[in-house]
Simulated assay, not measured.
Amino acid sequence: MRPKRNERGTSDGLDRNKDTHARQQFGTELPHGDGKTWRFLAIGAGNTAFAYVITTALYYMLARRLHIVAIGAIANVICITEAFIAYKLFVFRARGHWLAQYLRCYVVYGGNALIGLAGLWLLVDALGVPFWIAQGGVMIVGIAVSYAGHDRFTFDEAQRG
C-alpha cells in the first residue's frame, strides 16, 4: 500500500500500520526521513552530557547550602534553556515565535523536571542511591518523553508552516 501524500507531496506517515506508528511514537523504532531523529539523538547526547555536568557540579557546590530540590530546579532552568536553543536551531530547524516555543518547551521539560526531581528525591533521600547514579538514571527516562513532546508540541506549529 502506498503512503498518502500531504499537500507538500511528502508522506505524513499517518497511513502506516498501527504497530509501526506506535513503535515510533514510543521511541522503539526510528522513523526514516529528514534526519531529524538522528539530529535529536546527537544534540540530545550533548545536551545530556551538559546537563549531567552542570547538575552534578551544582550539587557538589551547593549541597551544604541548598536542598537537593532547589539545586535541581536551578539546574533545570539552565539546562532547559540550552536544550531549547539547540533543538530549535539544529534539530527541528523551527521558525516561529521564540517565546511561544520556549514556553511550550517548558511544558515538555516541566513534566520531565517534575519526574526528575521526584526521582532524585526518592532515589537519593529515600533509598540512599548515590547522587551520580540517580541523576544518570533519571536523565535516561526523559529522552523518549522529550523527543515526543518536542516533535508533537514544542515545535509542531513551526513544522506545519
Rank of each mutant, 00 (worst) to 15 (best):
Q101L: 04
Q101A: 15
Q101D: 13
Q101G: 02
Y102D: 08
L103V: 08
L103D: 12
L103T: 15
L103P: 12
L103Q: 14
L103R: 10
L103F: 13
R104W: 13
R104Q: 11
R104Y: 01
R104M: 06
C105F: 12
C105V: 09
C105Q: 15
C105G: 10
Y106I: 00
Y106G: 06
Y106Q: 13
V107D: 03
V107H: 01
V107N: 14
V107F: 08
V107P: 14
V107Q: 01
V108P: 04
V108L: 03
V108R: 04
V108I: 07
Y109L: 12
Y109A: 01
Y109E: 07
Y109R: 09
Y109N: 11
Y109P: 00
Y109Q: 08
G110C: 09
G110H: 03
G110D: 01
G110I: 00
G110P: 02
G111C: 00
G111H: 09
G111Y: 10
G111E: 02
N112P: 04
A113R: 11
A113H: 01
A113M: 07
A113L: 12
L114R: 11
L114W: 10
I115H: 01
I115W: 07
I115S: 02
I115A: 09
I115V: 14
I115Q: 08
I115P: 02
I115G: 03
G116M: 09
G116E: 02
G116K: 09
G116S: 14
L117R: 13
L117E: 08
L117F: 06
L117A: 07
A118K: 00
A118T: 08
G119L: 07
G119A: 06
G119Y: 03
G119Q: 01
G119P: 06
L120D: 13
L120F: 02
W121N: 00
W121I: 02
W121R: 10
W121T: 12
L122T: 14
L122G: 03
L122M: 12
V124E: 06
V124W: 08
V124A: 06
D125K: 11
D125S: 09
D125G: 00
D125T: 15
A126I: 11
A126R: 10
A126P: 13
A126E: 14
A126F: 11
L127A: 13
L127Q: 15
L127D: 04
L127N: 00
G128A: 14
G128S: 01
G128Q: 04
G128F: 05
G128R: 06
V129F: 10
V129P: 11
V129Y: 08
V129G: 13
V129H: 03
V129N: 05
P130F: 14
P130C: 07
P130G: 11
P130D: 11
P130K: 00
F131D: 13
F131R: 15
F131L: 12
